[in-house]
Simulated assay, not measured.
Amino acid sequence: MGKYDFTTRPNRLTQFTSKWQASETNPDLLQMWVADMDFLPIPEIKETIINYGQEHIFGYNYFSPELYQAVIDWEKNEHGYAIEKEDIVFIDGVVPAISVAIQAFTQKGDAVLINSPVYYPFSRTVKLNERQLVENSLKVINGRFEIDFEQLERDIIEHEVKLYLLCSPHNPGGRVWAKGDLEKIAELCQKHGVLLISDEIHQDLALFGNKHHSFNTVRNSNKNFSIILASATKTFNIAGTKNSFAIIQNKSLRQKFQRIQLANNQHEVPTIGMLTTQAAFTYGKPWLEELRRVIEENVTYATDYLTKNTKIKVMKPEGTYLTWLDFSAYGLAQPDLGEKLKREAKVVLNDGSHFGKEGKYFARLNVATPLETVKEAVARIARVFPK
């Protein structure tokens, strides 16, 4: 029995929660999609917010030395990544930071590459900023995503790619990229003058003995052409408090990034986001260690149950709390697949086609919820999609 409660599922129906909004009028629906967790908050973070409400005046604030140090210590202790205060640029979210990077380092019409399928704001952000989207399809080998590096280089050369958006660890596949993969990516970026943006928001959620390597820890020279994006929000379920950070060790890149950030008036972060981030990185390690064990148990249960009782192919994640489900054996594509899940199984999953053309027969399952909820969800899915 652990110190923290991961068995109680909070009632979020009265909290204006995006994930559970449809259940407010249809309470039979199980919401297993949006990538936030249905666990009780960390006590120290909750106390920080209570103290904020009781003690603070809600005016403008600056980034405290303690906040910077909390980030520096976390990166060093958890990921072996030595950074300094001036390397850190706070911004209200990783996705906004991607927009700033695209605007700062590319021009309209320039090619931006992603590995598809991938977290759908990647493609949306590229397109809305009027850049050319280059989709490098990932290959499924031995049940996990792999990069076809020969095709990757061809895509870079053919489209004259200026910027590469990497998702590390990968969403929706849960792949924790090996050091060798990151070294190959770095070699191609250096060879062809490509700037790399590495979204590492799931960096703390490597599972089953897998190790996350922050891109700049792989080779020291990587810092000359890369920007690392990370946050406490996914790890500690505080996305609504809005704070993330870019690590930009190259001064010239940092100045260009900050210039566009200021032009967009994105240089301020809510005070509550500063406080929750500092509290998470200061007090959250014991909770995170328990969380990983819970997620591993949930992933294992869902994988084993669906494999045994259905024809669904489960991509068991090496990291994150997201599971990529292949329904192709049933010959049902999105959006009909999602409608059948919702209407008959009463389970809402992410539409796989939103992540790219490769996701036509797929859905994404979020298992960051008490095990009993996972059991109910996969049992419902298996009744509708029997073996």
Rank of each mutant, 00 (worst) to 15 (best):
N220Q: 14
R144W: 06
D148S: 08
D87E: 10
A22E: 10
L113V: 01
V118C: 09
F355V: 04
L288G: 02
T48C: 13
A104Q: 08
Y301S: 08
L341Y: 00
G338S: 10
N350K: 12
N142L: 13
I50G: 07
V94P: 02
A230F: 01
E84A: 15
Y283D: 06
H213K: 05
Q15G: 05
G93A: 14
P335S: 11
Q151G: 11
D73S: 12
V374K: 06
E55D: 15
P172C: 04
L332A: 06
K285M: 14
E200T: 08
T233R: 09
A232M: 14
E84N: 15
V218S: 02
W324M: 06
D110V: 08
V89G: 06
Y321H: 03
W177S: 01
H79S: 11
E55C: 11
G2M: 12
G174H: 03
R219V: 12
F225M: 09
T303G: 07
P27V: 06
M32L: 13
H56A: 15
V269D: 04
S23P: 08
A22M: 04
F149D: 00
L152I: 10
F257Q: 05
Y120G: 01
E372M: 09
A70H: 04
C189R: 01
F362D: 04
F327Q: 00
A329W: 09
D28H: 06
Y81C: 12
D148M: 06
K316G: 00
S123C: 08
K316D: 00
